[in-house]
Each structure stands twice: as structure tokens, then as C-alpha cells.
Write a protein that binds this DNA or RNA. Structure first.
Length: 453
RNA sequence: GCGCCAUUGGUGAAGUGGUUAACACGCUGGUUUGUGGCACCAGUAUGCAAGAGUUCGAUCCUCUUAUGACGCCCCA
């Protein structure tokens, strides 16, 4: 049997509905914030990622899917979205648009050649947004608050926002040096991984799990102490705007992002819900003012955010967030003979075009089996087509929950269903009492919803 | 790249170095029921991830590979 590739997933059924739902929420809110959708290729020149993300980062040196195409070109599957967006920004000369900043969002598949584990796959879907062409701290705050609002809009409550500032390149370099200077005399007190980090990526030592309680780390110099005045002012400004947006956040000096292109504001949003694996960061981002120039474009200040959809789905499920996912059908049409089957076919089309979710039997199974099928599909109503009834222009409709059965005129069926189904909907809608009561099971919340009836 | 555990039917799974791989659910058919959902009867893995090895004989032992789970590095 041919199996799917390691770390890739087939998404179908209920899970696929959740993914589609998330997409609709994202599209809706991004439209309000006036971000336009951008779609860039999944394959890019390998060089883009080496120059963009940084050739010293693990993500580029050992985690890209690389290949040489038939024309001898070095190609990589994109491991993240920003580099492609910036490439597109430059290549299409979007920087010349007088209406800058450009606000865009993407939503697509990324690939990283990693060992899969909880919350990490080789094929992942990331949604992300970028503002290109503005250095205004308001942009930083907007991106962070927008990210938070998306999580909120989806119904997540247990999230935490961590922010930090790496400062400009000058501050960042100086800090790095100070950090090495600080740890070097104590190298023997660090864990094996940290000894390596000291040269490679000293900032990561601060985030070490083994040495979490190490006094050395707690007393290490903080990024924020090494910001120059300008950087510090801008970080404070970002916080002011965040307060305006009423975003709750924490300053976490240990937030160090993995990609080389970040400077100034960096942030991460983590899931705090019980049960998440060790990878609990839902999304993160930051400012990358140097990237555009690095890729031979004009010096353009930018900021962005990216979020893994897979982890988002996990968070939604762990928090048991009620989702508006349709998992039942309105009507199932049963039949026994060919004449009835023809009518079932005809009627199903009529009712579908009238807006109802209608199913019928395809395999000529026994009536008993058809009833079971109707039950499996969660049909709200069941109609057994009967030649005699049909000749009398009548149809027998049964409510599968109450078991009430009615014989109605065929001409009235649309009106009948409309009334019945909409009545059911009304039961579920807000009735203003604000109380918590038992879920009527008509939607997909696993019985845990807080109905505001 | 490293580590640890796992891989039995549609599903959840029990199990043993040796004739017919337990049980449950599900599914299919039948009986009964004024048209299902209850009950009863019957059927439902020629195979225990793939390959190789040890053995008289392996699903159970060994090795390799693949995949899954989790963790490390790193990261969303």
C-alpha cells in the first residue's frame, strides 16, 4: 500500500470542515482590516531562503525540501511565507505604489524537513499577514492585536501574548556580544546544548529548558537593557498602541525568534490550554526592516505575523470551542421501487435547489438499511416515498427526533420544511436570557456550549 | 540529525514459538416488528506494517526498512 509521506496529513471529514471554517473567519476579518490576499508559489529559488531567512538558521540549512529541476535550477519548497511575499513585493515593484503601506495576507502550505512530533509536521499550513512599507509602531500593534482578534473571533480564550524587542541591528549585535561575554567564563555551568549555542545562537541559551532554573540565565543581561534610545522609544510606543487596542500582553525578554531577519518588535502567541504538546506556540512574528534590502529591493520597513493552522485546530479542539459546523442533513428520501426512486431523484434536486440539504439512497438497499443510513447521516427529517401517496400528491414526512409523522401535500413540502427547520433554528438562537443551559444538540459543541438563550 | 515507545480485521482491541487469531462495537443478510432504531439467527482477518534471518515451525525471537506517537536539537 502506498502511504502518505512522513509528516504529511490527509485532512477530511469533520476536520476538513473545521479547516474551511477557519479560512472563512480569516477571510472575513482580513477584509475588514483591509488586507488583500496574496498567493505566491510554493516553490522558490533556494537562494531566496538562504539570503532571506539567513543561511545560519537551522530552518534553511537542514530543514528545506531542496531539489534540482529538469533545467538544473536549485529549487526549494517554501518553509515559511514571508520571504516569498517580499520577493513578490520587489519583483512586482509594489514598492512603487503610492498607497503604501501594502497590507497583505496569505494562507498556504509550507514544508519543513523535520522529524514530526506533536504540533509539528513536515507539511504545514500557515496563515500570515504582512505590512510592507511602514515603520510606524502602530503597524506593530495592529498586527499583534489583529492576530489576537482572530484567535478571539474563533473562540479561543486561553492564549497568551509575549512581546519583546530585539532592537535595531546595532542594538542586536551589541547585545549578542554582551551575552557571549557574560556566559563565556561560565561555560562549564551550562548544559551541552547551551555550550554549542554560545557560539551559534547565544540568544537561545535564555530559552533553554534544561537550564531553566539556572541562576546564570536569570541574571543574564536582557535585550531590553541594550536597546539604544530610539529602539526603546519605539518599543514603548508599540506598547502604548497595544494598550489602545486593549491587548493584554507580557514582556518576555526570552522571546527569540528563529529567523535571522527579525529586528525590533518580536512576539509570540502561545496556547495555554491543558494538553498541548511541547510546541505550544500558535503563531508569532515581528518586524523585519532589513529583509527587503537584503533581497535587492529598496530599503523597506516591514512587519508580519504567521500562524500554524494545524496548531490552531488543535487549540480549538482542546478548548472545546463550539464551532458552527453543519454535520447533519435536513431530509433523507427513502424509496422501494423504481418509480419512487425516480421521484426521490427529482424531489432531491428540487429541494436542494430550494436550499435544503437533501440526501437519498444510492445503492438500492433495503428499507431497513435506508433507515439506518438516514440515521447515520443525522437526517432531521425522513420521508418514505410511497407510490400510492405520490399518486395522491402526498408525502409522509417524519421528524426523526420527535418521531412525529405527518402527511402533507407535495406542493407544500418546501413551505413545510422551511417552517419546521427555521423553527428549530430559532430554538437555538439567542433569546437574551444570558443563562447557561443544556445544549439542544443541534450544533457541534459536544454538549459543552454556553447557550445565551 | 538524535532518543524512546509503538504498528494485529471497518473500529476498539485480547493473544500465543506449533492444528479453526478471543471478545466487543460496527457492517451485511435473514426472522420478527403496520416502515428502521429493540430482540434473535447467520456472515464478516487464508492473516497479525514490509522484507530478511533464527527455528522442524513465528503474529509472537533477531535485524533492516517504512510509518505513527512523544521528546531533544530547532521551530509555527
Amino acid at each position: 500500500m502506498i502511504q502518505k509521506q512522513k509528516g504529511c496529513n490527509d485532512i477530511y471529514g469533520r476536520e476538513a470542515k473545521i479547516w474551511k471554517y477557519i479560512d472563512t473567519v480569516i477571510d472575513a476579518i482580513m477584509e475588514k482590516y483591509n488586507y488583500t490576499y496574496i498567493r505566491t508559489p510554493i516553490i522558490e529559488a533556494t537562494e531566496l531562503f538562504h539570503r532571506g531567512i539567513g543561511s545560519s538558521t537551522d530552518i534553511v540549512t537542514k530543514e528545506t525540501y531542496d531539489f534540482v529541476d529538469r533545467g538544473g535550477r536549485k529549487i526549494s519548497l517554501r518553509p515559511e511565507g514571508t520571504a516569498g511575499v517580499v520577493r513578490s513585493f520587489i519583483e512586482n515593484k509594489m514598492y512603487g505604489d503610492p498607497s503604501l503601506p501594502l497590507k497583505v495576507y496569505y494562507n498556504g502550505t509550507m514544508y519543513r524537513y523535520e522529524r514530526p512530533q506533536s504540533g509539528r509536521d513536515r507539511e504545514l499550513t500557515q496563515f500570515g499577514m504582512e505590512i510592507l512599507g511602514s515603520d510606524d509602531p502602530l503597524c506593530d500593534a495592529e498586527i499583534i492585536s489583529l492576530a489576537v482578534n482572530i484567535y478571539k473571533m474563533l473562540g479561543l480564550k486561553e492564549i497568551k501574548v509575549n512581546i519583546n524587542s530585539l532592537g535595531d541591528d546595532e542594538s542586536r549585535l551589541k547585545y549578542r556580544e554582551e551575552l557571549i561575554k557574560y556566559f563565556k567564563p561560565h561555560i562549564d555551568e551550562l548544559c551541552e546544548d547551551c555550550k554549542e549555542r554560545l557560539e551559534k545562537n547565544p540568544l537561545r541559551i535564555l530559552d533553554c529548558k534544561v537550564d531553566a532554573d539556572n541562576k546564570l540565565i536569570k541574571n543574564a543581561p536582557k535585550t531590553l537593557d541594550y536597546l539604544n534610545e530610539e529602539s526603546r522609544d519605539r518599543f514603548e510606543k508599540v506598547q502604548e498602541y497595544l494598550d489602545v487596542f486593549e491587548v493584554k500582553y507580557e514582556i518576555n525578554p526570552n522571546i527569540v525568534r528563529g529567523l535571522d531577519y527579525y529586528n525590533h518588535t518580536v512576539f509570540e502567541i502561545e496556547a495555554k490550554v491543558e494538553g498541548f504538546g511541547s510546541n505550544n506556540v500558535l503563531g508569532g512574528g515581528g518586524r523585519y526592516n532589513g529583509l527587503c534590502k537584503q533581497l535587492d529591493g529598496p530599503d523597506t520597513p516591514c512587519i508580519g505575523f504567521a500562524c500554524g493552522i494545524g496548531r490552531l485546530v488543535t487549540a480549538l479542539e482542546l478548548e472545546k470551542v463550539p464551532l458552527p459546523i453543519v454535520e447533519d442533513i435536513d431530509l433523507f428520501l427513502l424509496y422501494v421501487n423504481e418509480e419512487e426512486k425516480n421521484y426521490a431523484a427529482y424531489l432531491s434536486q428540487e429541494l436542494r435547489l430550494a436550499g435544503f440539504i437533501v440526501e437519498t439512497e444510492y445503492n438500492n438497499r433495503s428499507l431497513k438499511a435506508q433507515f439506518k443510513q438516514a440515521e447515520r447521516l443525522n437526517a432531521k427529517y425522513i420521508a418514505v416515498l410511497n407510490s400510492e401517496d405520490l399518486n395522491n400528491n402526498e408525502i409522509k414526512i417524519k421528524n426523526s427526533k420527535t418521531k412525529e409523522e405527518e402527511i402533507i401535500s407535495l406542493d407544500a413540502i418546501i413551505y413545510y420544511l422551511d417552517e419546521k427547520l427555521n423553527t428549530n433554528l430559532d430554538d437555538e438562537e439567542d433569546c437574551g436570557c444570558g443563562e447557561e443551559h443544556e445544549c439542544n444538540g443541534n450544533h457541534d459543541c459536544g454538549g459543552n456550549c454556553h447557550c445565551h438563550h
